[in-house]
């Protein structure tokens, strides 16, 4: 179980991106994190998996715990190996000059067991489109294939929990559907997932619980079904206003409710 408590993160010593974020991911869940661009979702994932320093960020306050142990100060290799939390970065993080197979093998580099080849085959079974192009260089694969490869590479590290950063970004709706079906399947087999998405509808459909983030804070949380029905979520993230398209005047902040609750 991952818990984030009052996390504050600053980039380049001066840009405050997370302003007190608290959330929780229980084992076996799919937790969805939605929010507009710049809300700090990727920063949160980077912080959890120990990569924040690579991007010149600092955790200046708060705690991140896996079970009882604090993850602060650990680097990504430790967190993957000992806490089994793997982060699949945004924008299809594959090695473009390596083939599909080589990518999967590279992701398993830190493993010392002998089952890597078996796992490669298993991942190719989970993502049938990858099987057809296994010898192709990843840079030539389509966006959907690259995203599947990235998630497959994450699986190669044998995680208990995967942090997925906007997997549907830039993908066609049908591919997104297939992808989310696979993600749901992985969860059913026991993988805990923290899913950051802009495609709120698809994400909340497969999620158990969700959080809404805005400018570095959690502004709403609840069960996924409730969030889908929440009026403000529907208007801001699902694009379904109950009334007619409002005039800009009505959307002005001082006329809106001041709080999310």
């Amino acid at each position: 179980m991952i818990s984030v408590e009052n996390l504050r993160v600053v980039y380049h010593d001066v840009i405050s991106v997370l302003n007190g974020v608290s959330l929780r991911v229980d084992d076996g869940e799919v937790v969805v994190l939605i929010g507009a661009n710049g809300a700090g979702k990727t920063t949160l994932l980077r912080s959890i998996c120990g990569l924040i320093k690579v991007f010149d960020g600092d955790i200046i306050e708060g705690d991140i715990r896996s079970g009882d142990t604090s993850l602060l100060g650990l680097d990504s290799m430790d967190i993957i190996k000992r806490h089994r939390i793997t982060y699949v970065m945004e924008d299809r993080p594959v090695f473009e000059y390596l083939t599909i197979e080589e990518n999967l093998e590279a992701a398993a580099f830190s493993r010392r067991d002998g089952e890597i080849k078996k796992d490669v085959e298993q991942v190719l079974e989970i993502f049938p489109p990858l099987k057809n192009i296994r010898g192709k260089r990843a840079g030539y694969a389509s966006g959907g294939e690259q995203q599947m490869l990235a998630i497959g590479m994450g699986l190669m590290t044998r995680p208990q929990c995967m942090l997925l950063d906007e997997p549907s970004l830039g993908l066609a709706p049908l591919i997104t559907e297939e992808l989310f079906r696979i993600i749901e399947g992985l969860n059913r087999e026991g993988l805990t997932i923290l899913l950051v998405e802009q495609n709120a509808h698809a994400a909340l459909s497969i999620g158990h619980r969700g959080y809404v983030m805005e400018t570095g804070r959690i502004v709403l949380d609840g069960a996924a079904e409730e969030l889908i029905r929440n009026e403000d979520v529907r208007e801001f993230y699902l694009g379904a206003g109950e009334r007619e398209r409002k005039s800009y005047k009505d959307a002005k902040r001082y006329k809106r409710r001041k709080r999310w609750l």
Partner: peptide, 17 residues
């Protein structure tokens, strides 16, 4: 393989351990 991966992107390599 690891050398080639790191040569492409250090951040991505570290994300995969």
């Amino acid at each position: 393989l690891a050398i080639r991966a790191v040569s492409e992107s250090q951040a991505r390599s570290m994300a995969y351990g």
